[in-house]
Amino acid sequence: MPIVVDKKERRAQVVAIAFDLVADEGIEALTFREIAAANGCSTSIVSHYFRNKNELLFKIYQVANERARDRLVAAHERRLPLLRCFDAILPVDEPSRRNWRVWLAFWSRAHLEPDYLEERRRAAEDSLALYRSMLAASLGTDAGTPAMEVAARRLLATVAGIGLEACFAPDDWTEERMHAVLAGELSDLGVGSKS
């Protein structure tokens, strides 16, 4: 009797292994052979789910965006203070640091390749909508105002800047410093530390 394989689960497993390899070793080191070895399967299994390395790489980039958004939404749904919600994105723990390493590996592609640029734009628009909603809920105001658009863009730039700096200078950008800078921006936007 043939073994029943959950194709969706197997594909997700291949992506998860490839994601970790990119986070640990970068894009250039990623090969189907390395993924297969880490997964304990043949390269034909990997190529069954992805036609080529570029298709797999694009999926990894999408997964990095999805993971960050899902973590942030979950934190917000748990009604954590807004400052603590952003721990889901800022590089304060190993999962978020890995996500940042994957993002950094792909940002040059977002600058040069239309598909990556479009995914970057989509993720940014998604983030802005989420940030507007989170800020409006914290401030008890309408998310659709021009002021909330500006506030969400300020928050997006602040979170991205803090995360980027923390990746390059982790000893300087401690969790406490990340929180202090983000708390300052949130305060300027009218969000208190308890919100």
Rank of each mutant, 00 (worst) to 15 (best):
Y61L: 07
G192M: 08
L104R: 02
Q13G: 05
L186N: 02
L135E: 07
L135D: 05
C41M: 08
D188I: 02
R177M: 08
R79L: 14
G192A: 14
L56Q: 04
R121H: 12
C85Q: 10
A147N: 04
H111E: 15
Y131E: 03
I60Q: 08
Y49M: 06
A166K: 00
E119W: 04
G192F: 03
V150Q: 13
S42V: 05
T158S: 10
E165P: 00
L82W: 04
R78F: 10
T174C: 02
S187V: 06
I89R: 06
R97T: 07
A152H: 01
R177D: 05
A143H: 10
Y61N: 04
G184T: 07
L90P: 07
R11N: 05
E55K: 06
T141F: 03
D142A: 13
S187I: 02
A137V: 04
R78L: 14
N65P: 00
D24V: 00
E66Y: 00
A68N: 10
T141M: 06
N39A: 15
V46L: 10
L156D: 09
R153W: 00
L83W: 09
E118Y: 12
S138N: 08
L139Q: 02
A143D: 13
D70N: 13
V159T: 05
A152C: 07
W103A: 04
A105G: 07
V63P: 00
D188L: 12
D188F: 06
L186P: 04
L186H: 01
K53L: 13
T158Y: 04
A169C: 08
A68K: 05
L90T: 08
P91V: 09
V14D: 02
N54R: 11
W103F: 09
L57F: 11
A16S: 11
L112C: 12
R84M: 13
S44Y: 08
P95M: 08
A152T: 04
L182C: 10
S133M: 10
P2H: 06
A110W: 01
K194N: 10
A64G: 03
N52F: 09
E34F: 06
P170K: 02
L130Q: 02
I17R: 07
I60D: 03
F58D: 01
A29P: 09
F106D: 03
A160W: 08
C85P: 08
D115K: 15
A74V: 03
R10D: 11
K53Y: 11
H48P: 00
D20C: 00
Q13T: 07
S47H: 13
C167Y: 03
T145Q: 03
L112E: 15
S127T: 02
E176A: 14
K8R: 14
V159F: 06
E119D: 06
M1C: 12
V159I: 11
E94L: 14
D6T: 07
E66F: 03
M1Q: 12
K7R: 13
I3T: 13
M1E: 10
I35S: 01
M148A: 12
Y116V: 05
E113I: 14
G192V: 10
E25P: 00
